[in-house]
Simulated scan of single mutants.
Amino acid sequence: MRKHRFEPAVLVMGLVLLTLMVCFILDVCRVWDLRPGRSVPLVVGGLLVAVATAILTQVVRAVRGRRTRPRT
């Protein structure tokens, strides 16, 4: 198996989608009432967290890349 970069935004988005899946399953089983007023903020908030994680990851990689690159 080839090595690949760790992508924290993908991990966060996966966790957000799993959380949404559990919420929707609980709604179908009538354990929890998930109205659109509750589900839309969950989706939008999860997407914003994933985007913020992706941006932060790119900033950290850019800063680290500048530090490790030899100066000429």
Rank of each mutant, 00 (worst) to 15 (best):
P70D: 10
R61A: 02
G65N: 08
A9D: 14
V12G: 00
V59S: 01
M13Q: 06
L26C: 12
H4P: 05
L48W: 03
L48S: 05
G45Q: 01
R2W: 06
T72G: 15
S39I: 11
R2A: 09
L20D: 02
A54Q: 08
L34E: 12
D33T: 12
L15H: 10
L56Q: 05
A9H: 14
L47S: 09
A62I: 01
L56G: 11
H4D: 15
T19E: 14
L17E: 07
M13R: 07
R61K: 12
T72L: 14
V43W: 01
L48N: 04
V40W: 10
V22C: 01
V16W: 04
L48K: 05
V43L: 08
V59D: 01
V49R: 05
C23V: 13
A62Q: 03
T53G: 03
L48F: 07
D27M: 01
P8V: 03
M13E: 04
V12W: 01
P70L: 14
A52Y: 07
T53W: 02
R35P: 00
P36M: 03
E7R: 15
P70V: 13
V12L: 06
V60M: 09
R5N: 13
L34H: 05
V44T: 10
W32T: 13
C29M: 15
R61C: 02
R66H: 07
V28I: 14
D33I: 08
L26P: 01
V49M: 11
I55H: 08
L47C: 11
A50Q: 05
V44Y: 06
R71I: 09
R66P: 00
A9G: 09
R35I: 04
L20M: 12
A54M: 06
A9Q: 13
A50I: 02
T68N: 06
P70W: 09
V22G: 00
D33Y: 10
M21V: 14
